[in-house]
Amino acid sequence: MPDDEEQEGQVMLPPRPLKASKGRGAVSNLQGRFDKQAREEYDDGWPREEEEPRAWKTQVTEEQAKTILSRNSSPDLPFGVSLNPYRGCEHGCIYCYARPTHSYLGLSPGLDFESKIFAKVNAPELLRRELGKASYVPESIALGVNTDAYQPCERELRLTRRILEVLQECEHPVGLITKSALVERDIDILAPMAAKRLAAAAVTLTTLEPSIARTLEPRAAAPARRLRTIRTLTDAGIPVSVSISPIIPFVTEPEIEHLLEAARDAGAVHAHYVVLRLPWEVNPLFQQWLQAHFPDRAQRVMNRVREMRGGKDYDSDFSTRMKGEGVWAELIRQRFQIAVARLGMTGRGDRFKGLDTSLFRRPLVIPPLGSKAKEGSAGQMDLF
């Protein structure tokens, strides 16, 4: 390890996109805040390595979760109970506020978050046990709020579908939040539930520009495909909200009115928005992304973000974290409200709380702890 005198003349190098990160959102595998050792890249005079792995392959690890329902009392969230079948998300959205959770696993909130996925394979069993408790009081469950419940590995694992089967059996209300067209697979469950006011969906729409979407949220459905999903769900009788989030100054912010109009034309009836949030490691990761893809406006973007956050990169206060504060935050609010009113939509923030909880019935069969029920089985388990 060189001493202080030797380090004095060395030049610290800025983060650079890894060749292996092509098709990913993060441009580095930034260290988590709980890592005991810090690493920094500097120019030691030797030629830099040019050869890197061709791809950052996705690894899905099965895990046995201990609990499955998360509860919150945040006044700015439209739900009190949520369920996430997966940890990490292959969609790779650079702005994802869930990225810092990978730090608790000793992994990076950067490329690790979108390539090392953990599947809670006992989620349907845990949910059935939770709903069967005598003390359980039904409340709309928001499905897929931290990480998308319909990310690519769901095609094979089908955890989300099995969870919906449990909720349908118990006539329990659910609200889905997704960027994936895979939700259309489960219309056969969601449509009958929606007819009883037991299901609603929210589709996140960030930009209509494919070139921006390819780097901002590289493995999520393309904007046009999401609009088709809104139309398909609407035609099936499932009420759809559109989430215009995050609004990124000078990147997606100019599209606010166009996004709302496209969503309304596709069938969305409610709309809400969130301005860019940069908690913990999301902040440096997003700024790396800005420098890699929008170097010409990176400083302007961050200046505007700070203007809406009281001079800071981020403020976690419940009253301002979703919408920001100040002149520019107020301008966005007015633009959004005027567009929503003009288009005949509503800006409801309680889109999942309007679902019906009165039909709830406890599951007839509750599998013993640790048992493995077969996929699709809703009846009594074998006696012997």
Rank of each mutant, 00 (worst) to 15 (best):
L111H: 13
S180N: 03
W56I: 01
H293I: 05
D186E: 06
Q380A: 15
I256L: 14
E114A: 11
A200D: 00
T215G: 04
A373T: 15
P367C: 10
V137H: 09
G45E: 06
L131E: 10
P2T: 04
A268C: 08
A378S: 15
E261A: 07
E253L: 06
D43M: 06
L157C: 05
Y42K: 10
Y273G: 05
K36P: 00
E50P: 04
P152F: 09
A220I: 03
E6Q: 05
P78E: 02
R71C: 11
P152I: 08
L343C: 03
Y97D: 09
A199E: 00
L205K: 07
P14D: 09
T61K: 01
P218K: 08
V301H: 14
P2G: 05
N146Q: 01
R300L: 08
T101N: 10
Q287C: 13
L260V: 02
D265A: 08
L159I: 06
L227N: 06
D382P: 02
C153L: 09
K353Q: 09
A20P: 04
A224K: 12
K323C: 03
R297E: 13
E8G: 01
R333V: 08
F336C: 06
G370K: 15
Y97K: 04
L278V: 13
A142N: 10
N122E: 13
L167D: 02
P367M: 08
N122K: 12
K323V: 06
L167P: 01
M1E: 06
A65N: 03
M302A: 08
G144F: 07
P173H: 01
A262G: 12
G106E: 14
L359A: 13
S82H: 11
A202F: 01
L355V: 01
S108C: 11
R333F: 11
T160Y: 00
R333A: 13
K36A: 05
L83W: 07
G349E: 13
I247S: 08
D313V: 04
Y42M: 10
A339H: 02
P284N: 14
L131P: 11
T206H: 07
V166L: 05
D148T: 11
G237D: 00
E255Q: 12
G23M: 05
S82V: 06
L107T: 07
R48H: 02
R39L: 14
R219S: 15
M322A: 05
D350G: 05
